[in-house]
Lab assay of single mutants.
Amino acid sequence: MPSETPQAEVGPTGCPHRSGPHSAKGSLEKGSPEDKEAKEPLWIRPDAPSRCTWQLGRPASESPHHHTAPAKSPKILPDILKKIGDTPMVRINKIGKKFGLKCELLAKCEFFNAGGSVKDRISLRMIEDAERDGTLKPGDTIIEPTSGNTGIGLALAAAVRGYRCIIVMPEKMSSEKVDVLRALGAEIVRTPTNARFDSPESHVGVAWRLKNEIPNSHILDQYRNASNPLAHYDTTADEILQQCDGKLDMLVASVGTGGTITGIARKLKEKCPGCRIIGVDPEGSILAEPEELNQTEQTTYEVEGIGYDFIPTVLDRTVVDKWFKSNDEEAFTFARMLIAQEGLLCGGSAGSTVAVAVKAAQELQEGQRCVVILPDSVRNYMTKFLSDRWMLQKGFLKEEDLTEKKPWWWHLRVQELGLSAPLTVLPTITCGHTIEILREKGFDQAPVVDEAGVILGMVTLGNMLSSLLAGKVQPSDQVGKVIYKQFKQIRLTDTLGRLSHILEMDHFALVV
């Protein structure tokens, strides 16, 4: 994948999101292997301009796509893939009243899908469409860049269908997702969380590099694949309309690839034109409109599966009536509230959605109805927002919020430890010299600072030695090549209790 991002070429006709291997024109390309080798690009942008032909009021008969309808489940399912879809609609009884809503608040519980998330729908649909058009064949390999849930859905379907599955996901995604993927037989590649989507090191860039190296491999490409919004247009939206008897006044959905909100909203605009569509985008993402909503100094966020630093091709923002931004604290607070007060075992993005819903639905009156999409299960986040310690460490809970008995030293300040200034190293000294210094002084790690004293990161003896043994660096290389740029900081005025929580999850903390 090139470091400079080429513009994806656009073909003359058809839909841009065809499933299957992508040609340089962004659509299915038939021909000899030699032709494909000559024409197939190194990668295709996940934010390529959409060429979708959908228009409100256009006859369904003019759609270029294969459409399906929700099917009634048999008493005995032939395999677990038949437990994807037909998820329950559940009334939220307490939270709406707590925040003064007059309307009825309903939750579409997508964590009841077989793999635990709304992404099971698009995973199965992308595979079925690729099999139907002859792209996927027995023994082929599926590769997908994902925040985890699409990966789980694909790995689940691949396990049943017999495909090899490789999932490329950023490091910030939970260990629970990784464990589930491994249990399903998927191979996992992790990428830096802070890598831009168009960087060769991003999950998108690495996935395309693997595709170019592995024979008979395919990126189904949830960011561009029409099967993504079509899955929701054909099934999720129809289920909502049936469950609500066609009567709903507002739908609120958090947005990642945009397939969920695009597919549902398009069908609702056709069948229930008075329904307002509300999009939820986390602070630090750029999906919301108008652009002024996205202006923030924050560039990272903890909530998973929603928000991006690019506009995915499948996201149709014209069908969203209003956007709201959400933050991590309210997302996790509301997710825990949904679990504790409503018994809905949902993930953090569901918290984002409901946090926005109780604001947006203030305009609705008694007798009206708001539906929220709860995308995934708490299963993926047992060591994250479900953990009091994690919430404390991230600053989303305060010590006084917890009532468990603490040891005698818990409320003492870090400054009472009488710490001395640490050994520091410059980023320009060599790895070999740094190892000598650390061994001589008896230290395992040291902060790396520039000549102005600005902290650049941390270097550890173990990481340097393993990097040297693996051949990633040489003793003569500058130590700046092996620094940890993500590390926890703590102030002298913070409590030892807070430091204790940090050290339970990290090997060190830097006192500043």
Rank of each mutant, 00 (worst) to 15 (best):
A265Y: 07
K177C: 01
H65C: 01
N225F: 01
N225E: 01
E4T: 05
G256S: 04
G96R: 13
A157T: 10
K83M: 07
R266P: 01
G258F: 04
P6S: 15
R18I: 15
P138Y: 12
K267Y: 06
V10A: 08
C165P: 01
A69C: 10
H22C: 10
K108R: 01
Q242K: 15
K82E: 10
T68Q: 14
K39L: 12
Q55C: 14
T135F: 09
S217G: 10
I95S: 04
Y223W: 01
L124Q: 15
P64C: 05
N194G: 01
S61K: 07
S27V: 11
K25A: 01
L124H: 09
E110M: 06
D221S: 01
A69T: 10
A207Y: 03
G259N: 01
L101D: 01
D140C: 01
R276N: 14
G246D: 10
K82S: 08
C244K: 01
T13V: 14
R209Y: 09
L220A: 05
G256V: 01
V206R: 01
K108G: 05
G139V: 01
W43V: 13
P59S: 13
A60T: 09
G258S: 11
P6T: 01
A265G: 09
P273M: 14
L210G: 08
Y223Q: 15
I95R: 06
L210N: 05
P229I: 10
M173N: 01
F99Q: 06
K172V: 01
S63W: 01
P2F: 11
A226I: 12
E176L: 08
E62K: 13
L154F: 15
L28R: 01
H67I: 09
C272A: 12
P6L: 12
T87Y: 01
P6V: 04
P12F: 06
C109D: 01
L220V: 03
A231E: 01
L77W: 05
Q7M: 05
T257I: 01
L105S: 01
P74I: 03
D249Q: 01
G14E: 08
T87L: 05
I142H: 01
L28I: 12
M173G: 04
I214K: 03
G96Q: 04
K75E: 05
L230S: 07
Y233G: 03
L105I: 11
L220N: 01
E34W: 09
T68F: 11
M126W: 04
R164D: 01
Q7S: 04
V180D: 01
V178N: 01
E131L: 05
T260F: 01
N93Y: 06
A159I: 01
P273Y: 01
V160P: 04
E144H: 04
P46L: 04
E34A: 08
P12I: 05
D47S: 08
S19N: 06
C165T: 04
P70M: 15
R18V: 10
K98R: 04
N212R: 13
R91K: 13
T262A: 12
E270V: 10
G11K: 08
L77E: 01
L251N: 07
P2M: 13
V90S: 08
Q243P: 05
Q55A: 06
H17W: 15
G26V: 13
K94R: 15
V10P: 07
D221G: 07
F112V: 05
T68W: 07
R58V: 08
L210Y: 01
W208L: 08
R125V: 01
K269A: 08
N113W: 06
I95P: 01
A183V: 06
N194F: 14
V10Y: 09
F99V: 01
T5L: 05
R45V: 07
T68C: 09
T236L: 09
C244S: 01
K177F: 03
H22P: 01
P88L: 05
G274W: 13
G11V: 07
E110Y: 10
A38C: 12
R91L: 05
S63M: 08
S23G: 06
H232S: 10
K94P: 01
T135R: 08
T68S: 10
F112H: 01
D179W: 01
P215D: 12
L181D: 01
C15S: 07
Y163R: 06
